[in-house]
């Protein structure tokens, strides 16, 4: 389920970083409130546990095996926000140290495995386990099962939309080349039939062991009604996000004057003036009177000089 670098185009990567940034911020703030001074060790050790769990193979009938993701498990134990952070740490380390999952696809992987798995797993567990928490085994199984399927579905949609979103002038795909109907079948079939039951069983067994050993889980049974409502919200979100990606028009906020006129009926005066200034400076990344390639090189040199100057200034201010 870890999407490597080079499978998703820049637009998709940017969208998922933009989606995850406020979620990471909110998770940091929420976790600070709930875990207080112990937040750092608890989160670090929970993340290390999930990392190790991901490395262990769970045996299944037929002599085969597979590793579990642990997103639902960590959310059940720590809560959804801490689960999100914990999974984010694990995914980052995996991408950095083991090359498991990409750096550019880190936003998308975090969305699938840290956000969707933690939240869907947590709220399903809260809804199914009941007020007294007696149905914990079934709840953990269903929560983990559904959370894996949700994450696999999101991954399939992200990969399957690439040929639509990112193709060259000839219509050839530039990144993951398979259409949605192929990615959905390829991702969902093994996950629904094999990996999700395995994740469900392993999670249920682990939660059962922890509860029997006197441990406790995060879910507060009294808030179950609220959590059910949030579950509906989450389901709506899961449906809406892939639809947003289908838009193949100009990205939000990158409209030209003509497009803006079509959208809102007029072009604001300030916008028109600024648009012309920018074009006069670097029209299409080039300069009038220069060859196209040379123009690109000069534009790139200017661009990199501007960025390095900005970093230098930031370094000076940071030092102070």
């Amino acid at each position: 389920m870890h999407i490597p670098d080079g499978y998703l185009g820049p637009k998709t990567c940017a969208v998922f970083y933009a989606i995850m940034a406020p979620l990471w911020y909110a998770a940091l703030k929420k976790t600070e409130k709930t875990l207080e001074v112990s937040q750092l060790p608890v989160l670090s050790l929970a993340s290390a546990s999930v990392f190790v769990i991901m490395m262990l193979n769970f045996p299944v009938p037929g002599g085969s095996s597979g590793h579990i993701v642990g997103g639902a498990m960590v959310a059940i134990l720590l809560g959804p926000w801490a689960g999100l952070l914990s999974m984010t740490l694990v995914l980052f380390l995996q991408a950095l140290l083991f090359g498991d999952g990409g750096i550019t696809a880190f936003g998308a992987n975090s969305f699938n495995m840290a956000f969707l798995m933690s939240f869907s797993g947590y709220f399903i567990y809260a809804a199914v386990s009941g007020k007294d928490g007696k149905r914990f085994f079934a709840a953990a199984f269903i929560a983990a099962y559904v959370s894996v399927c949700v994450a696999a579905f999101a991954t399939a949609v992200e990969l399957g939309l690439q040929p639509v979103l990112e193709a060259d002038a000839m219509g050839m795909p530039l990144y993951a080349p398979y259409p949605l109907k192929v990615t959905l079948i390829a991702m969902m079939t093994p996950h629904v039939l094999f990996f999700a039951p395995m994740e469900g069983l392993a999670t249920a067994l682990i939660v059962a062991y922890i509860l029997k050993a006197g441990g406790r889980v995060h879910v507060n049974a009294e808030g179950a009604a609220l959590k059910r409502r949030m579950l509906v919200f989450l389901a709506v979100l899961v449906v809406m996000v892939p639809l947003g990606l289908l838009a193949s028009e100009t990205p939000f906020g990158e409209w030209g004057g003509e497009e803006l006129k079509n959208l809102i009926g007029y072009v604001p005066r300030g916008f028109a003036r600024l648009e012309n200034v920018w074009k006069a400076l670097l029209p299409d990344y080039g300069f009038s009177g220069m060859g196209e390639t040379f123009g690109y090189v000069v534009s790139a040199l200017i661009g990199s000089a501007v960025v390095v100057s900005a970093i230098y200034l930031w370094g000076r201010l940071w030092k102070r």
Partner: peptide
């Protein structure tokens, strides 16, 4: 499968105990 659950559960339990000790030390 049971042993998998035991070893993971045991590890998670130890991890939380560690985190308590670590917090106290910090």
């Amino acid at each position: 499968q049971g042993w998998f659950a035991f070893s993971v559960g045991f590890m998670v339990e130890r991890a939380f105990r560690f985190s308590g000790d670590l917090t106290s030390a910090m």
